[in-house]
Amino acid sequence: MRDQPVLSLRVAAAEAIAPTLRRVSLRAADGARLPPAAAGAHITLSLPASGHARPLKNAYTLVSADLEHGYTLIVRRTDPTRGGSQHIHEALAVGDVLEASVPHNLFALHSQAKKVLMIGGGIGITPLLAFIAALRARGTRFELHQICNSADLRVFAALIGAQPGEAVHLHAGRSTFDAAVVLGAQPLGTHVYSCGPAALMDAIAAQAAALGWPASHVHREDFGAAGGEPFTLTIGTSGARITVAADQTMLEALEAAGIDAGSLCRGGACGVCALPVRAGELEHRDHYLSADERQSGAVVMPCVSRARGDSLVLDI
């Protein structure tokens, strides 16, 4: 794969696999081979959104990336719908061409894991599906606990396609999943990966720590909690004022106003979009900044973090 920051992808297939789930396969618009992507990688799609002058950028985990099918995503329709998923569910059609970033991996499997424990909540299953394929190919032992609505049980079971002898457990809701029991019985050298709602991932991290798991063996993928109270953003150098709506991230508001902050994971993990702050109280939601940097209040990750009050002044 040669230096090529932007890909042009054509929708090769799109199908509803459940009332709120759509599976989309993307290939290179010019028919060339796509760059390979390891399990856990994501791409950022630029999607047209009604009511927005500029396309929205959304990060999607790749469920698979292979020669036969290209890149495959599974997108859940959120409620209330935010622009990206709405477009994918209502408008995206086979043959459409989208601009995408090259794959990037912020949720890679640890090469030294003796066993991989995966805990997914809802649509958080997407990177885990890629993991399962990679772990089967490597012959690495794994255990999966997927928590979902009872309505999704059958479709998730089909996506996983458990083979005889595999430790795959589907839970209809949190009540049948006991994190203490699961985390308390793992052999030395296990790495746990959680992906799903922040509350689930927080609970896994807390339980793992309570049972003596070292931080190096506990991994999570953050989609980032996007919403919150609206606030006003002031650009320090120009004095321009931008409103960040309740269902919008600071990064999206900046982009809608024509300010390209540069971004990558859009989930508070990679550090690429960090911006200097001149004034205002911050609610840090990222997993990138150090404790000292948070304390200083001088830098913010606009892809996930917000103002704690009603205004924030950026030093840009």
Partner: peptide, 8 residues
């Protein structure tokens, strides 16, 4: 650690 795929 931040060198990205496609951005040598």
């Amino acid at each position: 650690m931040r060198v990205r795929y496609g951005h040598p």
